[in-house]
Amino acid sequence: MPTPAGAARFLPGERAIIIAEDDAAIKSAAAEMRVDKEAIRAPVTRETKAERTLMLGWNRRGPIIARELSRYVAPGSQLTIAADTPDIEEEVRGLTLASDNMAVTCRVTDTSSRAELDDLNIPGYDHVLVLGYSDHMAAQPADTRTLVTLLQLRRIAEKTGRHIGIVSEMIDVRNRELAAVTRADDFVVSNKLVSLMLAQASENGQMAAIFDELLDEDGSEIYMRPVTDYVSIDKPLTFYTICLAALRRGEVAIGYRRQRQGEADARNLSGVVVNPGKSDLLAFAEADRLIILARQ
């Protein structure tokens, strides 16, 4: 029996990688696979542009972040590191980057001071990362200083009327809910991430290979890309159609982000949905994004 175009046969001993909330949530699909092939668009080539990134704060993860960031940015990009930890200038001079695409500069700055943050011209950056001072402070004082920085950034954004893309590190997961009032785009709690990975890997040793693939610089990455790069949005589509559009490019679609005024977001995930029902008809807008697993 021949397999449909784009489909694959599983051979004895092979395993499927399934995204699910829990083992008990895994079910076989019984819905009709409705695919609108006419809505699928040809691949779009987008030219990458140089970016300016600001890193506020510093700890032992700073050099790793800078090195990994240099792998992804386009030539001519810039990273400014602003912090007031001891020997910060010497540490920045000793950074080892993965490519020559990014230049790094250092500013000795009190990141909790509004005057010193204003002097950095925050709105002039494409991305802002806020790290906790966890190497020099206990978790609560470090998170307190991070919160002050985030509140200052929120005031700067309100004054200039511009959205500032901010990702911040929290040391203690209990402070993440408190930090939500600062309206940063996302918070990363590194210890929690490690704990979640270890818990999953302990239940299934084969998960370690999957994490290696996702976190290794040579492996696949998770991207958020415009839905209009993949499909036409002039009518509702099933996620089956989006999966096929991604599959034709050698990619895997695992979710989407749709933000609608007044639409419920029970988990406070900014409209992000992972592993959606594939047979449901979805109406997308120009600003919506697909969550894609791809090599590049």
Rank of each mutant, 00 (worst) to 15 (best):
K235Y: 06
R258M: 12
R260I: 08
V274H: 02
G205V: 15
G219E: 00
G219D: 00
V272L: 01
V273M: 06
D216E: 09
D280N: 12
L237M: 04
S220P: 02
V188Q: 08
E263G: 08
N275D: 12
I233C: 06
R225D: 01
A209N: 14
V274M: 13
S279F: 15
A179K: 04
L196H: 14
L196D: 15
D212R: 11
E221W: 06
S190H: 10
R267V: 02
G271V: 10
T241H: 11
P236G: 11
T182R: 07
N275Y: 09
R260H: 08
L282M: 11
I233Q: 10
D218S: 11
D265R: 05
I210W: 07
V181Y: 08
L198G: 00
G255I: 07
G250P: 15
C243A: 13
G255E: 11
D186R: 05
L196N: 14
A209M: 12
L198I: 05
L196Y: 13
I242F: 05
L281F: 10
R249W: 09
F239W: 01
R258Y: 10
I222S: 01
G250D: 15
M197A: 09
S232C: 05
V274R: 02
P276F: 08
Y240K: 08
S202H: 15
Y223R: 04
D185F: 05
Y256G: 02
G271N: 11
A209W: 11
Q259M: 12
L269P: 00
V273D: 06
I210A: 03
S202I: 13
D216Y: 09
T241M: 09
L244Q: 14
A201G: 10
E221S: 06
Y230G: 05
S190P: 09
S190E: 09
I254R: 02
L237G: 04
M207A: 12
E263I: 01
D229T: 03
K192S: 06
L269S: 01
Q259H: 11
Y256M: 08
A179I: 01
M207W: 13
S190N: 08
S220D: 08
G277E: 13
K192L: 10
E213D: 13
R260Y: 10
A209K: 14
Q261F: 14
E251T: 05
T238I: 00
S232K: 15
S195A: 14
Q200M: 15
F211C: 03
S202N: 15
T228L: 10
C243F: 06
N275I: 03
P276C: 03
G250E: 15
M224I: 06
K192Y: 13
D229Q: 03
Y230M: 08
A245V: 02
A253V: 04
